[in-house]
Design a protein around this nucleic acid. Sequence first.
DNA 1: ACCACTACCTGAAGGC
DNA 2: TGCCTTCAGGTAGTGG
Length: 280
Amino acid sequence: MPELPEVETVRRGLEPAMTGHVITQADVNREGLRWPFPPDMAARLTGARVLGLRRRSKYILADLDRGETLLIHLGMSGRMLVSGLQIGHFHHDHPAPEKHDHVVLTMETGARITFNDARRFGAMDLMPAGDNHPLLAALGPEPLGNMFDADYLAARLKGRNTPVKSALLDQRIVSGLGNIYVCEALFRTRIDPRRLAGSLTAAEVAHLVPVIRTVLEEAITAGGSSLRDYRQVGGELGYFQHSFRVYGREGLPCPECGANIRRIAQSGRSTFFCPSCQSA
DNA sequence: ACCACTACCTGAAGGC
DNA sequence: TGCCTTCAGGTAGTGG
């Protein structure tokens, strides 16, 4: 589910509820999600103050006092919902617990952060303060950061015999893109997703970099894309899905040329593209 | 080293 | 109504 724009939207939404505040209660309702939770997770969270929230790729990192950082991944269906935030005179009540509410953090303010994840592909772990976690070790650069530029991407795609679609999904090359935004970026650059990564010209790679940035920034501005599970922290839908040009639009007309959008499978994932605009 | 594929899990949607 | 199949925003691990 959540790709970089969705995770960044969640991070921003958690900020007012968490940053600077103490976690007064941690309710952990199962042993783990994709992996077991770390030992004594509830006790290690209880009483900790959240110093700040960062995002690395599709991970949210909550820096705690006491020298630990909480790592969160939403997997495919994970949601973080905030309730009970006091806004002016309006008090938002806590909703009834729902199926798949796995971890609930209660803050000193009375706000509550609920991690809900139907498919349980998400993850939570605690690590020593910083970025030193095995899941972060091999990640490529942030697509919105300075390290990600045409020279870098060209070097990483060079010699690769996998389709460019699959290469851009590889988090070791660039971290944070997922199926939606790769399809959308390739459409906007008119690059055929079936092309081998190593076959792209320097000009095509140079075009791809700023287009990837633009797509991600537009999606963040829209609060992400809501297809089924994803919600912003207040339960609101994102609305970038209304701006999809090819993703999920099989059989519909291409917004550029009117040809029918096609869906194919690449590395076991659906790829949507315009067979006319994006022809090798 | 590289690449394709499986597995993990639940739920929604579509066909019959 | 219900059963069965397919598909879904991710990614670690396996095996060719």
